[in-house]
Amino acid sequence: MDRKLEDYEIENLLSWLDKIPFSRPKRKLRRDFSDGVLVAEVIKHFFPKFVDLSSLTVPFSSREEKLRNWSLLNRKVFPKLDFYVPEEVISEVVLSSPGAIEPVLSTLREKIDRKLADIASKKPILDNVDIKTLEKTPEAIHEVEARILAQLAKMKIDEENIQKTMKQKVVVESCYTVREPTLLRQFIFEKDQVILDLQEVVKILQTKVEKLEHLLELKDIRIDQLTKINASNGFNLTL
């Protein structure tokens, strides 16, 4: 994060920022982002539930208020992206020092891209299943059902493993005490990050389970419809 960006990297970063709708016009990067508010808006653009903008002090604030904003982001928002800005870097950013904010924003962009890719990778294959598939033949319906059940089974195993991991970490972390302040802050940061990541995965799995169960309900309804149609046409349909 302390690396100075090349000109082309800064241009690329500015192009990325231009695509984000901010609450106020961007005029000078190092001043616009010094209070942390626009940084929070960047995160909220991609992850609306990650940050509450009302908890931050309004722009054009004092140095103390700017530091408060950054401290709040470091404690409650950045960990959700596995991101952390050192205090010495924050001090430079708050003072609008030349070249201080660009590496922070560049690293933040990398973390955001990584988080988006991680979320995308957790989407079940069945997200791509067209509901119209359930309007086809009984064989197609059974194929969808088999895929849904397999996905549900995998999700159940994943969730059980996550819960087990969370319990294990609590036990391990309770077996010792970190006394040095710097190590303690890092220890707490890493612990909270692991918990947040695991909780996020659990939420995603729970949402997917609900969607898959809904697909199963639609499958059952369609089977009933096909059974009635075939019965009315004099066919004996065995599913």
Score class of each variant (00 low, 15 high):
residue 89 V to C: 04
residue 94 V to S: 02
residue 121 S to Q: 11
residue 95 L to R: 15
residue 131 I to S: 12
residue 134 L to H: 07
residue 97 S to M: 14
residue 138 P to N: 04
residue 90 I to K: 04
residue 120 A to W: 04
residue 131 I to P: 11
residue 119 I to K: 08
residue 120 A to C: 07
residue 134 L to F: 05
residue 101 I to G: 09
residue 138 P to W: 00
residue 122 K to T: 10
residue 99 G to S: 08
residue 106 S to N: 12
residue 111 K to H: 10
residue 102 E to K: 00
residue 130 D to T: 08
residue 136 K to V: 09
residue 134 L to I: 11
residue 100 A to E: 03
residue 139 E to I: 13
residue 114 R to F: 01
residue 100 A to V: 05
residue 131 I to L: 15
residue 113 D to Y: 05
residue 102 E to S: 03
residue 102 E to N: 05
residue 103 P to C: 00
residue 138 P to T: 11
residue 118 D to R: 06
residue 97 S to H: 14
residue 95 L to F: 12
residue 122 K to E: 13
residue 138 P to V: 12
residue 137 T to K: 06
residue 125 I to W: 02
residue 97 S to I: 11
residue 103 P to M: 01
residue 110 E to N: 01
residue 115 K to W: 01
residue 119 I to S: 00
residue 107 T to Q: 10
residue 104 V to F: 06
residue 129 V to G: 11
residue 132 K to G: 10
residue 92 E to D: 14
residue 101 I to C: 03
residue 139 E to K: 14
residue 127 D to Q: 14
residue 103 P to H: 07
residue 109 R to Y: 08
residue 120 A to Q: 14
residue 100 A to K: 04
residue 104 V to G: 06
residue 92 E to S: 12
residue 116 L to Q: 10
residue 130 D to V: 07
residue 115 K to N: 10
residue 95 L to K: 15
residue 111 K to F: 04
residue 84 Y to R: 05
residue 95 L to A: 15
residue 116 L to I: 15
residue 135 E to C: 12
residue 86 P to D: 01
residue 91 S to L: 15
residue 133 T to Q: 08
residue 129 V to S: 05
residue 110 E to R: 11
residue 105 L to N: 08
residue 126 L to N: 01
residue 112 I to Y: 01
residue 118 D to F: 12
residue 117 A to Q: 10
residue 97 S to R: 15
